[in-house]
Nucleic acid binder design. Structure first.
Lengths: 200, 200
DNA sequence: GCGCGCGCATGACATTCGTCACCATGCGCG
DNA sequence: CGCGCATGGTGACGAATGTCATGCGCGCGC
């Protein structure tokens, strides 16, 4: 019997996933949490074999949770289940020692399969991401990132300059670089691309 | 036995919700779809008593799906289950004759309850939204909405004009109106505001 | 010291955006 | 019919944006 913990911030999804996995005869949901902090405490108490966690949760994110588990020397193996097909997320997940990364777009049955595979010591990476994670890494440096983030919110160059204590011309230069690097046509498209890749 | 159809674009969530609801003795999941179009066809075939649908799905959204059901004179009662606590969504849902609006943040058990309530002819609205839905209503008309949606993706006025078969000047006019109505400083901020309110 | 790269700034220029006043068409309605 | 009203368009103008070439200081390696 594989003992698992589930962490997912949306209660309804948490409940549904737990119900689905509990139907498997070889899997038992021993703990559930709606944020990373609770999840960490429960993991320390229950010592689950496998941990299934979302990434975007209030407080401690799934990635931080995974890192914390590793730091505490817990044997639990981690599967990330998330909406976001962002190479940046996958890269950070793997760095945190995560053994599985699935998308919520994947068929439901795959989750149980993945849990078994990982319990046996295997790895499961969403095929959509397996290849592209390493080939195209984040081309932005962090001044470009900062500027682009604000531009994506709709701030003007002047407002961005004021917030970051730069001149307006510099802001425009950085945006221009970012737009070039991302192959975008303007600042908004650039922000969209970067966000979608998980680079913001 | 309550016969239900579930529409939800993330397969894993769809599977999990279906598994959970099928465990209820008085509920039977007779159809599932990952987009509004499939859902509509299945609804016409299966004539479910209750339809559970997400809002944000590729192709036909849950709101459009609900409107289409009403238009086809189907007796099915609709429950929206979504991540987004946006007043605009709720308002449009109610306009489409939807009987329930739940958040994925709500406890899982509430979904089955809501299905029963609605099957009996009742209504269920997420309490977080019940009050605020009516106070600030959507000031946009739908040409402004269409234009703003594309502008938020980073398209230029010229590209938007081409897509919508309008002149560039007209596009700029519509954007200008939208920016004014929303109190924004530019198109990007306007798109952000509208999106966050659920008006896009 | 010298050159070099890097972070930041400036100035100039063409393009795009935001605004406004105004025109044309079409449709419902008294 | 004439009228208002909604829908698209035009043209013009200033402001914001995107792009480049260039300058200037500062740390770092040699």
């Amino acid at each position: 019997m594989i003992r698992i913990l589930i962490a997912e911030d949306q209660s309804m999804i948490l409940g549904a996933l737990a119900a689905m996995l509990d139907m498997e005869t070889d899997i038992s949901v021993v703990a559930r949490a709606t944020n990373g902090n609770d999840a960490l405490h429960l993991a320390l108490e229950e010592k689950p074999d496998v941990v299934v966690t979302d990434i975007e949760m209030p407080g401690m994110s799934g990635l931080e949770f995974a890192a914390a588990l590793r730091e505490k020397q817990l044997a639990a193996r981690v599967i990330i289940v998330t909406t976001f097909a962002r190479p940046g997320y996958l890269r950070r997940a793997l760095d945190a020692g995560v053994k599985g990364y699935l998308l919520k777009d994947a068929p439901a049955q795959q989750l149980a399969e993945a849990i078994r595979t990982i319990h046996r010591g295997g790895k499961v990476i969403a095929p959509e991401l397996a290849t592209e994670a390493w080939e195209c890494s984040d081309p932005l440096n962090d001044r470009e990132r900062r500027v682009l983030r604000l531009a994506g919110e709709g701030l003007s160059s002047a407002e961005i300059a004021k917030q970051l204590f730069l001149s307006e011309g510099t802001v425009r230069n950085y945006l221009s670089e970012a737009i070039g690097k991302l192959g975008a046509g303007n600042r908004v498209e650039a922000a969209r691309i970067a966000r979608q890749k998980g680079w913001l």
